[in-house]
Design a protein around this nucleic acid. Structure first.
Length: 758
DNA sequence: GTGCCTCGAGTTCA
DNA sequence: CTCGAGGCAC
């Protein structure tokens, strides 16, 4: 196929010379070639045509489409998101997300992990609840897909949703079977690729003998080896693999975690010999201690112990939080510590204006990595106390010139644990936190009760403006390929882009004379063209991404998607917000009145009559129409959105300059897509809004909510006329009454369970 | 009002 | 990854 593509391209007719018929045929041919190349690239490890050939086909397709827009095909390759080639490996979307684990750092957290699960499941303290405990291997996780017992794909974790295709490399690892006997038709095995200490040492000796740079630690060596573009290099590297989990399956492996691990072992995988079944927190902690004792003699790196609920049926009931399972936790070993000198404290300004202090350190090795910066969080952290005035680090303040103890929290983020006062220079002075923004000179204000000090300059502040732009192009927002933080910096500095809408007018402003872009460092004609194409691809985009991209305070990825699912369209959202504005302003004034009362009461030493004040301030106000109130109630009724988030959303979309900028952006977009409903075909409650009230007896609230959502229902906290079903348990009060008043369908827990089928 | 649980925002290095 | 803070259940 590579030869075919090359051969035909030699006979290609110049785009300008194409007749309409020829153009149509050519577009069809290109669509087929590109689709085939994509298939080859994404499902196999070796692309059939080179990146350069692929790019040139894509470019030709686009040029023809530009000349004959009416001929553009439904399945046009230029529309296909993610079809553009990344450097190196192809991307693989995991059939089931690869989750990370939440962490425990001491015995108490392990016990509260057990307690939390009992509470979620409604188990009493006496009920047996066994867990597995196994060492947490310090390598990199890998997902292996077997179909009919044959290894067909290996993918790294990536961001959890999408990983890299490393199939060819995985095939070179001895511990990974190419074929399985008696496996389910479909089986995704997950585990950890790692390198033993002995193999790491000898690899580094070979590296150095060859004049290569040695790896810092076994983990980096394993990661570097697995991500070799040439599988033959990977083959020469001594990688190993432990299996400990699974993804998509056509049939269950067992009924318990332990059983599943044994099954994986029987199928030919290496499983960790220190995996034990434990009968509760005490046995888990004992096994942790025993593993910690053996740590040095294991011959490979581990960074803790993982506990998992043994009963898979319970695992299924517990389900997942946004990025972690509820049924597992990693109990981490204490972090490695190192002393070094604090050379300076710099202030960074984030997109919300937050002033974040960063410690510049004399470089020091901590846990196999050289660290030269560490976060200092905020003003209070430097001063040695937290927001409530409680001392941290024994109340020691941190001064420039100090000797400080550094560790990598969670083995990643460098932090300062301690200060050596005996080595403090005589001339060291307490750090004076700036009260003006170091970037724009505006006043930096710290709100009452807030831990951070913020620059008040808004978009006048270049740091805030550019950080907002970076947020706009970030992965969960517009995610424009070829437009990362570095490029944004450059465009902003040169005055080419000062707000999101201007990204979309780059082509018309600078595209014709690509020359200008071409003359910049790192930009060729091809990359400029690719960038413009990547930008155009995002003129069609999901609603949730648009909302998130605006960078409204308190509206992150999850809240943005919640809003998108609730309002289903940009217009619906914006008009609801505009309608609710008078009510939001009324609410804000009410809160201010409450705050004033609180201060006054404190000063006079009497008890605050807060409820009275709040009620009075929020009472019927003719300036607030019933429509405004209804829109406000609806907004605050969205699960996960409270008054503070609602006020932030409404006010920020009401600010004139901000709104104008947003409108300019929206005008540049072609289509804002409504969120897809979850795949819940046949679900009787898909798309319905459900409210749970009163106490539930067969399941906990959290569980009820998670299950309803899995079936495509929206779970809300308050009853309104948009509510479809109210599930009322014993002790339900005002919400049940309101449901009756509004004529909303009302049912008890049993009826609900019958409705959703179990 | 209090105490989880989750989310948002800021962070490092390879 | 951590911290602070918002949302929500108790």
């Amino acid at each position: 196929m590579a030869e075919q593509a090359a051969g035909e391209s030699a006979r290609e007719i110049a785009v300008d010379a194409l007749s309409e018929n020829q153009a149509q045929a050519e577009l069809a041919r290109l669509a087929e070639l590109l689709a085939q190349a994509n298939r080859a690239y994404h499902t196999e490890d070796a692309p059939e045509i080179s990146d350069a050939e692929y790019d040139s086909l894509k470019r030709r397709n686009l040029e023809i489409e530009e000349r004959f827009p009416e001929l553009k095909r439904e399945d046009s390759p230029s529309e296909q998101v993610g079809s553009a080639l990344a450097e190196g490996f192809g991307k693989i979307r995991h059939a089931q997300r690869m989750m990370s684990l939440s962490n425990a750092f001491d015995d108490d957290e392990v016990r509260s992990f057990d307690r939390g699960i009992r509470r979620y499941l409604g188990l009493d303290d006496a009920a047996p609840l066994p867990f597995t405990a196994e060492p947490k291997i310090d390598g990199l996780s890998l997902s292996l897909r077997y179909e009919n017992g044959v290894l067909i794909q290996a993918a790294t974790r990536g961001d959890g949703a999408t990983g890299e295709n490393v199939t060819a490399n995985a095939r070179t690892i001895d511990d990974i079977p190419q074929q399985l006997d008696g496996a389910p038709e479909l089986l995704e095995v997950r585990g950890e690729v790692y390198m033993s200490h002995a193999d790491f040492e000898s690899l580094n000796q070979r590296q150095e003998a060859r004049g290569g740079k040695p790896f810092a630690n076994p983990r980096n060596a394993a990661a570097g080896s697995l991500r070799q573009l040439d599988p033959e290099i990977t083959r020469a590297r001594p990688l190993k693999f432990f299996a400990y989990a699974w993804g998509e399956l056509s049939a269950p492996l067992a009924e318990t975690q332990m059983g599943a691990i044994q099954r994986l072992a029987a199928l030919g995988f290496q499983t960790n010999p220190l995996t034990r079944l434990c009968d509760g927190p005490q046995e888990m902690l004992d096994h942790y201690a025993s593993i910690e004792e053996q740590r040095a003699t294991l011959g490979y790196d581990i960074d803790g112990v993982v506990y998992k609920v043994n009963d898979l049926a319970l695992q299924a009931r517990l389900g997942f939080r946004s990025t972690t399972p509820r049924w597992a936790i990693a109990h981490k070993f204490p972090a490695e510590l190192a002393w070094t000198r604090l050379e300076a404290i710099d202030i960074q300004v984030g997109r919300t204006g937050a002033l974040s202090p960063v410690a510049r350190l004399t470089p020091v090795t901590v846990g196999g990595v050289v660290v030269s910066n560490a976060t200092l969080h905020n003003e209070d952290y430097i001063a040695g106390r937290d927001a409530s005035g409680t001392p941290i680090r024994d109340g020691k303040d941190i001064r420039v010139g100090d000797w400080v103890q550094v560790y990598r929290a969670g083995d990643v983020i460098p932090k300062i644990a301690d200060v050596d006062l005996s080595k403090r220079p005589d001339d060291a002075v307490p750090y004076a936190f700036p009260e003006t923004c170091p970037e724009c000179g505006s006043e930096a204000i710290r709100e009452e009760g807030d831990a951070v000090r913020r620059c008040s300059g808004g978009l006048i502040c270049p740091a805030q403006a550019v950080e907002k732009l970076k947020h706009f192009v970030s992965r969960a927002a517009f995610d424009i390929e070829g437009l990362g933080a570095k490029q944004v910096d450059q465009f902003y500095r040169d005055g080419w882009v000062s707000e999101p809408a201007e990204i979309f007018t780059l082509r018309e402003r600078y595209g014709s004379g690509l020359q200008q872009l071409k003359n910049r460092e790192g930009w060729g004609e091809k990359s400029a063209k690719n960038l413009f194409d990547a930008i155009d691809e995002k003129r069609k985009i999901e609603l949730g991404r648009v909302i998130f991209s605006l960078g409204i305070r308190h509206v992150g990825e999850v809240v943005a998607n919640d809003l998108a699912r609730h309002y289903l369209g940009w217009q619906a959202l914006i008009s609801a917000v505009d309608t609710a504005r008078p009510a939001a302003e009324r609410y804000r004034r009410a809160e201010q009145a409450v705050e004033a009362e609180r201060m006054a009461a404190k000063a006079e030493g009497r008890r605050a009559r807060l409820k009275e004040i709040r009620d009075a301030a929020w009472a019927e106000d003719p300036a607030v129409s019933p429509e405004a109130r209804a829109a406000w109630d609806d907004l605050v009724g969205v699960d996960g959105i409270g008054q503070i988030v609602a006020v932030s959303l409404v006010t920020s979309l009401g600010q004139e300059a901000e709104r104008a900028s947003i409108d300019r952006l929206i005008a540049q977009l072609n289509e804002i897509e409504a969120p897809e409903r979850p795949a819940t075909e046949g679900s009787p409650v898909a798309g319905k809004t459900v409210v749970f009230t009163g106490s539930l007896e067969k399941m906990t609230r959290a569980e009820a909510k998670a299950r309803a959502e899995a079936l495509g229902a929206k779970v809300s906290g308050s009853v309104s006329k948009k509510t479809d079903i109210v599930v009322a348990g014993p002790g339900a009060g005002s919400k049940e009454a309101k449901a009756k008043e509004l004529g909303v369908e009302l049912m008890d827990e049993d009826a609900w369970l019958a409705l959703i089928g179990g």
